[in-house]
């Protein structure tokens, strides 16, 4: 099986800046991504639960596989966003099939 090395980005952010992060991914050449909705968790400021009424504390996880170059550019953009809004990004090496798609 032909596997290609790529980078996996897992970005946890507040739902309010989801659109900005999606725009960033598109601008930096990430060809695709998936958004997952968070149910609840705990962080630096304490526990949070999904609250469908206000959505003020709603978190989403954005998942993307991309090239080393695009991942580096996304990280630089996220650094700027994270100076203002809370967020977590994890970068890992993965192997994917059909590497030309990422």
């Amino acid at each position: 099986m032909d596997l290609v090395r790529r980078k996996k980005l897992e970005i946890t952010i507040e739902a309010t800046i989801q659109r900005r992060v999606e725009d960033l991914l598109l601008q930096q050449g990430v060809k695709g991504h998936t958004v997952l909705s968070g149910l609840g968790g705990r962080g630096e400021s304490g526990p949070w639960r999904e609250d469908h009424l206000t959505r003020a504390e709603q978190k989403v996880l954005i998942y993307a596989v991309t090239t080393d170059e695009a991942a580096a550019k996304v990280l630089a953009g996220l650094k700027e966003l994270f100076a203002t809004w809370p967020g977590i990004v994890a970068l890992s090496d993965v192997e994917v099939m059909r590497g030309d798609r990422f």
Binding site: E14, T16, I17, S45, G46, D51, T54, R55, A56, E57, T84, W85, P86
Partner: peptide, 16 residues
């Protein structure tokens, strides 16, 4: 939602 965008330093646990 507007406050999370405009005033990210504000604590939502307090205002909610």
């Amino acid at each position: 939602a507007a406050m999370r965008l405009a005033l990210p330093q504000a604590d939502p646990a307090v205002y909610l």
